[in-house]
Design a protein around this nucleic acid. Structure first.
Lengths: 112, 112
DNA sequence: ACATCCTATCGTATTTTTACGATAAAGGAA
DNA sequence: TTCCTTTATCGTAAAAATACGATAGGATGT
């Protein structure tokens, strides 16, 4: 952004951008989808699901966690990642603030 | 991505990631929102709306256009950008394929 | 023709992202 | 204790994203 922040942007635009950005990679979408398919949390099975190195997957998990879309808690030797449903709802809500199909009729250019 | 493609990924995951990535910047969210507020298309008023250089805004518009979220057509001296409602609907649809709040009850870790 | 306005693109620099292998840290089993 | 498994982090390299000023090109007006 044009202004560096250490804290998360609290504005609606910034929040939507932040969440969208976290989803903005095929591997991360796949992780999210995988976590929603299972009722269990899945530790490192995610690594087996993806054609990526374990360290790379770990980085993607970190991004999702930082965005608040998933949580990870230690369970003995492995770590359990779970979806954070509230944050997905939040994302849907923010997306919903964008135009609905009916409210945007085909428009002619009126710049002049 | 783990496999370089010249064409757009056609898979659902890839498509969602692609659209989310396009939205994954505050300036681009703001542009989208601005375009939805107006009934007219707005040419370079977008530049005035943002604290960014004209060339930078032009780049962001290019990203949104490439993602199919907006269209831009030349109208005399200026260019008119419009929302592409269908693509926003598509984005909402893809997001909807992710879990609904009720389908993701609070789960205990079951990895072991 | 010339000047002006609007926009895209170029060239560039900085930052961020993505990916990997290697390593470290923590837990459980022998 | 010593292994083994699991995960995070480090170090690094390559690619992409972001931003700007400068420039080019197209349309309009004089």
């Amino acid at each position: 952004m044009w202004l560096r922040r250490t804290t998360r942007p609290t504005s609606t635009d910034g929040e939507l951008a932040r969440l969208a950005k976290a989803l903005g990679h095929p591997a991360r979408v796949r992780i999210i989808r995988h976590l929603t398919k299972r009722t269990s949390c899945m530790c490192g099975d995610i690594v087996k699901e993806l054609p990526l190195a374990q360290s790379t997957v770990s980085q993607h998990l970190k991004v999702l966690k930082k965005a608040g879309l998933i949580t990870g808690e230690i369970d003995g030797p492995c770590v359990c990642y779970c979806i954070e449903p509230a944050m997905l709802v939040r994302l849907k809500t923010l997306i919903a603030t964008l135009p609905s199909p009916s409210s945007s009729p085909k428009q002619v250019c009126q710049s002049k």
